[in-house]
């Protein structure tokens, strides 16, 4: 056996190739969008796309962390909703100073995340079931609180996080999203906690026997997911200036799709935030393109569905191709 000293490069190659596939898919979609509509590449539209993607990406970071460690957090949409409802009720109805309302919403998100983590790690209910169950309970609460009403029209100070601009140029959702992604990347790649999250997802038994507090890590991962869902909720309502009880209903599945399109392994232990970001951009670009082209809304879900399958297919084909290259 001949050895080379390029082990690092080899693994990078494999990841790179899979990443390139996704990146290529995004690039092709952008080219198609530019050809189909002349406003697509306008500065305004691009800023629009990224701003829209921001909420998905913020949720996606939490979801990626949950899936790497254990499994999907199906309650994220409901947590987003209840936290947005509570925060807006506090500022609008009770006149509470908005940063306190935001902190309260984050705390609530973390608490709900803790419940998820506790059910999964300490009681042993699979994440699919526990987070799905929690989702119904939390949505129920949101309906009870709002009784079908819509809360709308908030203070500009509260709305800044959703529709303000940093230095008058960069939309705040993008700023928040970039902070979340950077922080998440740093945690996953450069900290002991990040390593431990991957270890728990890759082999929980081995991780525990290596001194990783696996239950605590799972709880931490879901607390993070809950907190990020709350944050996404605040950014979202601050941006659209209204909240109703089903505001988060249609977010979870596209977010999970973005995570899988980004190459995160459904069985845990493997995944990157960069992939999730690209996955989320792909979904948003297509949604935006369909808006610009005024695609009939009945077709939109079908298009998104086909797209998700195609992207994952490309990913798998690339990996098979890679295996072939190794074999040939």
């Amino acid at each position: 056996m001949t050895k080379t000293s390029s082990g690092v490069r080899i693994r990078a190659d494999a990841a790179l190739l899979a990443g390139l596939g996704r990146f290529g898919a995004l690039a092709i979609l952008i080219v198609v969008g530019a050809l189909a509509s002349d406003v697509f590449l306008s500065g305004r539209n691009i800023s629009n796309i990224v701003t829209n993607a921001s909420v998905i990406i913020i949720l996606g970071v939490g979801q990626t962390i949950a899936i790497i460690t254990n499994g999907p957090d199906l309650s994220a949409g409901s947590v987003l909703t209840i936290c947005a409802v509570i925060a807006t009720l506090m500022v609008k109805q009770l006149g509470i100073f908005f940063p306190i309302a935001i902190l309260a919403a984050l705390a609530l998100g973390m608490f709900l995340g803790f419940l998820n983590g506790y059910m999964i790690a300490r009681i042993g209910i699979p994440s699919f079931i526990s987070t799905y169950g929690l989702q119904w309970a939390v949505f129920g609460f949101a309906y009870v609180i709002l009784k079908g009403y819509v809360i709308y029209d908030f203070d500009t100070s509260f709305r800044f996080i959703g529709n303000g601009y940093l230095f008058g140029t960069i939309p705040m959702p993008i700023v928040v999203m970039l902070l979340v992604v950077t922080g998440g990347m740093f945690m996953l790649r450069r900290t002991v906690v990040g390593r431990e999250l991957y270890a728990v997802g890759a082999n929980r038994v081995a991780a525990r026997m290596s001194g990783v507090d696996t239950e605590k890590k799972i709880i931490q991962a879901f607390i993070l997911s809950g907190a990020l869902a709350a944050l996404a909720g605040i950014v979202l309502v601050a941006r659209i200036n209204a909240v109703q009880a089903d505001i988060g209903k249609n977010y979870v599945l596209p977010v999970i799709a973005a995570v899988f399109m980004g190459g995160t392994s459904p069985t845990g232990g493997r995944g990157t935030l960069l992939g999730t970001v690209i996955g989320a951009l792909i979904i948003t670009v297509v949604q935006n393109g369909m808006n610009l082209l005024a695609v009939d809304s009945v077709w939109r879900d079908a298009v998104i569905g086909v797209l998700i399958i195609l992207t994952v297919l490309i990913d798998i084909t690339m990996q098979k191709r890679l295996a072939r290259i190794q074999a040939a």
């Binding site: 991957y198 232990g269 493997r270």
Partner: peptide, 12 residues
């Protein structure tokens, strides 16, 4: 089952 995480690297 207990010793290795097969999908992680040697270093990890």
């Amino acid at each position: 089952r207990q010793g290795l995480a097969l999908i992680l690297s040697v270093a990890e």
